[in-house]
């Protein structure tokens, strides 16, 4: 559990960080909280010549809420997300999700930017960002660009971020609705056996908008448009939820691992998606 030798860089502004990435190309990687990268380096499954630590870049931190517009700096920790009262009012699902990530020690250090940028299918925030229809800002040598969370992921650890880009922040519109994040895991610190985010809006007695996304049930987060569509215009009765769950299950392809075989995971996914929908609807 000892990594190979590497150079450690600790820039204080984004330009310097980007310059270091530009200088060392694919030998360099940025580190945010380090909960994914450092274990991989210790296992010598990742040999990184240059580690660029982002923690001293003040511009990457903070939470700003302007009406319904929410911006979260990439280096904001899970602990800070949990403790932010404005955020809890604007998008309570963020706190609900962050509280289900590992343990307090991890959450003091782990960041939302690292969680979404790494492309690990086990991470919880990517599916949540898709559920919220968030947008990621990527800064590169030629300036910044924005990519929708629903377009960002291409496979396990494969995203639209280029090697010379840094994910700097996340923005989304907090449009309310009933929100819920349900997760089954074996224990604290484990990735989800199955997890689902649901945001439902209610107009009178019927569902006016629905967004359903899932964690660790494919090699990338899954936003199920079909599941949401199955609920819109309905009263979210049992049969409607059945249809939404069936639609969501049609969009996932879980892998067997130590948590269990595919058949089990699909079954649990159905239960967890249903619970998320029911909970979100109850809160709508």
């Amino acid at each position: 559990m000892i990594p190979a030798a590497f150079e450690y860089h600790r820039p204080t502004d984004l330009a310097a960080a980007l310059a270091t990435l530009g200088e060392f190309g694919d030998e360099a990687r940025v580190v945010a909280g380090g909960h994914s990268l450092i274990p991989m380096m210790k296992l010598r499954m990742a040999e990184i010549g240059h580690v660029v630590d982002l923690q001293d870049i003040a511009d990457l931190k903070g939470i700003r809420i302007d009406g319904t517009a929410v911006w979260i700096g990439a280096m904001t920790t899970q602990h800070e997300l949990i403790g932010h009262q404005g955020l809890a009012a604007a998008a309570p699902i963020l706190r609900e999700t962050a509280l289900q990530i590992a343990d307090p020690q991890v959450r003091y250090v782990g960041t939302i930017g690292g969680n979404v940028a790494n492309g690990d299918p086990g991470n919880d925030m990517p599916a949540l960002m898709q559920c919220l229809d968030a947008t990621f800002t990527l800064a590169g040598p030629n300036g910044s660009r924005e990519v929708a969370a629903r377009d960002f992921y291409e496979g396990a650890y494969v995203t639209l971020r280029e090697d010379d880009e840094i994910l700097t922040g996340i923005r989304f519109e907090a449009t309310g609705g009933g929100q819920a994040y349900e997760k089954q895991k074996r224990k604290i610190g484990d990735y989800a056996t199955a997890a689902a985010a649901a945001i439902l809006k209610k107009d009178g007695t019927s569902c006016s908008a629905a967004s359903i996304a899932m964690t660790n049930l494919s090699d990338m987060p899954v936003w199920s448009k079909a599941a949401g569509d199955a609920l819109v215009g309905t009263a979210c009765a049992a049969a409607d939820i059945d249809a939404a769950v069936a639609a969501a299950l049609g969009d996932i392809s879980p892998n067997a691992d130590n948590r269990g075989p595919v058949e089990f995971k699909r079954h649990v996914a159905g239960i967890i998606i249903r619970r998320a929908i029911e909970q979100a609807w109850a809160r709508a």
Binding site: Q184, R186, T193, R259, G260, P261, F264, H267, V268
Partner: peptide, 8 residues
């Protein structure tokens, strides 16, 4: 008796 074995 982990989750999947109990489920099974």
């Amino acid at each position: 008796h982990d989750h999947w074995r109990v489920w099974k």
